[in-house]
Design a protein around this nucleic acid. Structure first.
Lengths: 223, 223
DNA sequence: ACTAGGTGTGCGATAAAAGGAAAAGAGAAA
DNA sequence: TTTCTCTTTTCCTTTTATCGCACACCTAGT
């Protein structure tokens, strides 16, 4: 374990947690290191554009942080694609992975069954309000509980999956399960995996496979 | 400058650049360090979930990378908000900042003029195809030139701004300018700043102020 | 069996970072 | 103005974390 790198990454996380930014001296306190050390860490992070100093001296994340996040998604797709294909094969339904984007929920990866004559079309990039549909509810269920969670979100949280019928499209059945960090640390990945089909869905089996897939994917990204 | 942290950040970037992931030994070559060093760097990054080892040993970015990217946006909004407000005041038009999201272009921050009786509504979160509208064209113009750039993108790239009339809404005039990294390194932030108004826009002035704002915001995030 | 390429670990030498202290700068209050 | 306070930066000595070679293991291909 490289101590200097470790501290730098802690610094990054800490800076990310403060929406209003923080002063280098404050960062030093949070990291419990000498101020001189904090300044050295910050200057290194600055060189990589991971953090930026505002005119008033407060530190916030820099554009390289966004870049890194954007580069995560393509890799994640490749990583999760095999799992999703297997889920499709096992359930004979269209499988998807969706992530939260503000108040919406967007499909970032879809796998459709080969044999089916016609499938429920769920395109990559398509999004819907996060409080509707199995996917959105599953993502909300993956977040820490709050007082104003909808009943279906609470239910999904205890059961570990969300099931909706006709929520987004008439006659469509959706099952989705949140992809939770293996060790619950921070918000991290707000995503879910699920399947959607027209009525002809073996619900029992879909629930079993979807939840299994969620666990498997979670392990893939956070082992 | 902390050497260990510097190497770690280089490693992160390198891993992010390889969509298919790379082996630790390959990473060592790219960083031009001893393999032992690469292993130690990787193990530290792994502990922070910044990278994950696939079953086959290849390294890809982990969920913490996405988390970091998500935390950038709120901070960026705060950072850019004052500039945007000033832009609104100077041009008497609705000002916005948009970023690329795949094939779409999404507004992440909007500032509307106070005095105006009614304004062009450009809501935060609203998105449109990236090849339409001043915002999308400006973002495309901020990318490196390619052979299949549309003429209006080429024009925007040389001029430094995009101007469209009625592209997204009848009667609306839009001016937007890409927010370019101060030192052109990598893709980074694919964003633009602009204003939109109904016909009554002092175009000359808008162009001047919008390009100035783009430069100022670029400095804010990458100084 | 042997090679080649990837992986993982131990250890002494030394380059690199820690950390105290103090100077330099920037504001705010007196 | 002067005098605070707080942040930022530089300097320098000590300490230790890191380097980089080494060795051992594993797997697949010849």
């Amino acid at each position: 374990m490289l101590k200097t790198l470790d501290r730098g990454l802690h610094a990054l996380r800490t800076i990310g947690q403060h929406v209003d930014g923080l002063l280098t001296a404050e960062l030093a306190k949070e990291l419990d290191v000498d101020r001189a050390i904090a300044y050295r860490i910050v200057s290194t992070l600055e060189q990589h554009r991971m953090v930026v100093r505002q005119p008033d001296g407060r530190l916030v994340l820099g554009s390289a942080a966004l870049d890194l996040g954007n580069r995560f998604l393509p890799q994640f797709r490749r990583l999760a694609a095999p799992v999703l294909e297997r889920l499709t094969a096992l359930t004979d339904a269209a499988a998807f992975i969706s992530i939260a984007e503000g108040r919406f929920c967007t499909a970032i990866l879809v796998s459709e069954p080969h044999k089916a004559l016609f499938t429920v079309s769920y395109r990559v990039g398509s999004s819907h309000p996060i409080d509707q549909g199995a996917a959105g509810i599953a993502i909300l269920a993956g977040r820490p509980a709050t007082d104003d969670d909808a009943p279906e979100v609470r239910e999904a949280r205890t059961k570990g999956y969300a099931l909706t019928t006709g929520a987004l499209q008439k006659g469509a059945i959706g099952v989705a399960s949140p992809i939770l960090p293996v060790r619950r640390t921070g918000a991290g990945l707000e995503a879910c995996v699920g399947v959607v089909a027209m009525e002809d869905l073996d619900t029992e089996r879909a629930i079993r496979e979807v939840t299994a897939a969620a666990i498997e994917i979670a392990r893939l990204v956070s082992t």
